[in-house]
Amino acid sequence: MDSLTGLRVLVVEDEGSVALLIESMLEDLGCEVAVSVASLTKALKAAQTETLDFAVLDVNLGGELVFPVAEVLRGRQLPFIFSTGYGRVGVPETFKDYEVLNKPYTIEDLRATLLSMFNNGRSLSDA
Rank of each mutant, 00 (worst) to 15 (best):
A38P: 11
L57C: 07
V72F: 06
E99M: 08
L73P: 11
L124T: 10
A127N: 09
L52C: 08
E93N: 14
L29R: 08
D97S: 12
A43C: 08
E99Q: 11
Y86S: 14
V35L: 04
L52D: 07
S24A: 12
T94I: 07
N60V: 12
L21G: 00
D109E: 12
A70T: 02
F80H: 01
I107S: 05
A34M: 13
L29W: 11
K45E: 15
A46V: 11
Q48A: 14
S17I: 14
G87Q: 07
T51P: 07
V18L: 11
A19W: 09
F82E: 00
E71N: 04
V33W: 02
T49F: 06
L101N: 00
D53F: 06
E23R: 06
Y98K: 02
I81F: 06
V100Q: 12
F67A: 05
A55F: 01
L73I: 10
V59G: 00
D109H: 15
A46I: 10
F95A: 03
K42E: 13
L21F: 07
K103T: 02
L26N: 06
A43W: 02
S123L: 11
G30R: 03
L124F: 09
T49S: 12
G121C: 04
L101Q: 00
T106R: 10
Y98F: 05
V18F: 05
F67E: 06
R122Y: 14
V59R: 01
I22V: 15
K42W: 02
A46E: 12
L52Q: 08
S83E: 04
L52E: 10
V66S: 01
I22C: 03
D126K: 14
V37W: 09
V89K: 15
S24K: 13
V35C: 05
D97H: 11
L65E: 10
S36Y: 02
F67P: 03
V91D: 01
L73C: 09
V89S: 15
L20Y: 08
F67W: 00
E108Y: 10
V37S: 05
